[in-house]
Design a binder for these strands. Structure first.
Lengths: 336, 336
DNA sequence: TTATAAAGTGTAAGCGCTTACATTAAAATC
DNA sequence: GATTTTAATGTAAGCGCTTACACTTTATAA
């Protein structure tokens, strides 16, 4: 069995309170005593039991990040931001993966209910107002990342604006028949990106056509997969007349889309959304999301709330930036 | 403040023991009583406090997966396997990210010491025998994934064999001057893959040349980055004479390598290692690692050990399979 | 009906800690 | 040197649960 604070106290000839103090308020115990205790602790390989600590102190020093399958670089970047922000604070990070199979809301609710952590970061989880209100009842500090709500703190990204910029870019290059490579229609990011796409068309006097909204059949991860992009691009390539250019709603899908283009030896200007690390390497023009910053800022925000629970809800919205690469620039040269 | 078991007991007019039983041994409480309690629980939004439960019952029903930054699809696959295996059991999964900045050993040791969970999965963490022995002292159930050791259960992959197969494939296609796109020399997977590469050369009567072992300058993630692959391929392209073909030690690096090839408009047969989802879409020949299976099997193994701690240590080694795609097959046709 | 077993519930101890408060030892003040 | 402060440690009461054991019902058998 592992050692308890009693074992250490006895071996060091002090009371358990002193041992506890060595760990929590080291300055209040006489240096010599501290040394003595620490020596025993080291020899016996003792470590305070987190559950007991958590129960007794009501402090957990723990942040939990809830996110759907860490499917791509998006999370890596967000995670880096979170970790860097956390590095200066005395908090640990745990990740709870929200599977796609089951009901995301319940998975999140179950996790919050357990009061695992002091605060929670909900990453790329999109809930209805009603669901969020229900989550609010648990009364735990939450910050949304990559989602917006007036109920919780949030750090989000202007998807609508990003889609607008991308579409406008294609329009300004002279394209008129611009297809949008979409995904699950009721997913929040898709809803917003479609909105931006439509607004760009509208403001530039181009009529929107439902037939140019193309979706793959694979609906895993709400349709944000390479396969789904591949399927959708094949549908586009089967259109007659072909579209002039394509706005793809995610880099992951664009990877699949590029495969289809290559197979058909067709060359179509393609702009995408996310700016994953890999996008640079496959020459993908795309809309940059400041993922690292979003993770970093959201964590800061959450920690501030922990320190001061009465803070007013605050929402931070980050803005898109176009990153232009060969998929829209050197299209002709790239032709095979 | 959140409700405790006392609040529920009082409201339901039963003792706390009965409430506890409703959660833990539901069958031993009279259906009507159970209903009554559950009703109150629901109304008051109660949920047992995990820390208190863990402390009192000494059960945690929790598995922790420790892994370095979830940098690529490798982890996604492993994670899926873990989750699917866990789905049938009554365990929850937590992920602790082992940052690359600090000393991985200490991060792992700190986590194990805390006795967070019942069992631990150490994914892609490569420690020395000495370090593993030190970890063993914590006396907690551990299963290594993607690493091998006789001290702990493990589910690993035969890297040496994979590299051998890939290199042999190139040799059999008639290439003699085969470069290896390597990474941090003292990383365990690199060591093994280099070994397989050398053995293949040796067994086919080709002399090994140190000059064909090429590494990028970027050493983030032990050199397993797109950038590193890009840099290394540029070095290869600067060689005179150029190599006939390239064995790249990871798909991520191959993405970078392909960019360099494209920029130089050079066409070099390239085979890689991992078989990430994306590899299929960029036509990368590669060595398949059964990542999903490894995650699945490792979790099974760990759970078995939890049920039966006296089990003898067991090691499972998975074998590579070549997946041939256009990067080695249609090289000429792909030329731009 | 009464004895006996089975089912259901309650009581209370304890899981390993933290921390308010009490106590004692050491330092500072006069 | 006696008295007051301050520093260091100890005592003991919880934190919110589980569970062995004791006790009370209810069902079953005779």
């Amino acid at each position: 069995m592992s050692k308890t604070i009693y074992d250490i106290a006895k071996a060091a000839g002090v009371s358990i309170a002193t041992v506890s103090r060595v760990f929590n308020q080291a300055e209040s115990v006489k240096p010599e005593t501290r040394e003595k205790v620490l020596k025993v602790v080291d020899e016996m390989g003792y470590h305070p039991h987190v559950y007991a600590q958590g129960l007794a102190s009501k402090k957990k020093n723990r942040i939990v990040m809830l996110a759907p399958v860490m499917s791509n670089y998006f999370f890596t970047e967000v995670l880096k931001g979170i970790q860097d922000s956390l590095a200066e604070e005395n908090y640990e990070l745990n990740i709870v993966n929200i599977g796609h199979k089951k009901d995301a809301y319940n998975q999140v609710a179950e996790t919050l209910k357990k009061r695992w952590a002091e605060g929670y970061l909900l990453v790329s989880l999109h809930f209805s107002e009603k669901e969020l209100k229900a989550l609010q009842k648990f009364n735990v500090p939450v910050c949304l990342v990559d989602d917006f709500s007036t109920i919780f703190d949030s750090v989000s990204f202007n998807n609508e604006e990003g889609a607008y910029l991308a579409t406008e870019y294609l329009i300004e290059k002279g394209f008129k028949r611009i297809a949008i490579l979409s995904a699950k229609a009721d997913s929040i990011p898709i809803r917003d990106r479609l909105k931006g796409y439509k607004r760009a068309l509208d403001e530039h006097g181009i009529e929107f056509s439902e037939s140019l909204v193309v979706t793959g059949d694979d609906m895993a991860r709400d349709g944000f997969t390479e396969l789904s992009g591949y399927e959708a691009m094949n549908k586009i390539l089967a259109m007659d007349p072909l579209s002039d250019a394509v706005f793809c709603t995610s880099d992951t899908k664009a990877v699949g889309a590029q495969k289809a283009l290559k197979e058909h030896k067709v060359d179509l200007p393609l702009i995408s959304f996310d700016n994953l690390t890999i996008s640079e390497y496959i020459g993908l023009s795309t809309v940059n999301q400041p993922m690292y910053d979003m993770g970093f800022r959201a964590t800061n925000k959450l920690i501030q709330r922990l320190h001061n629970p009465d803070l007013r809800i605050s929402n931070e919205v980050h803005h898109p930036e176009l990153v232009i690469r060969s998929s829209t620039e050197n299209v002709n040269e790239v032709t095979t």
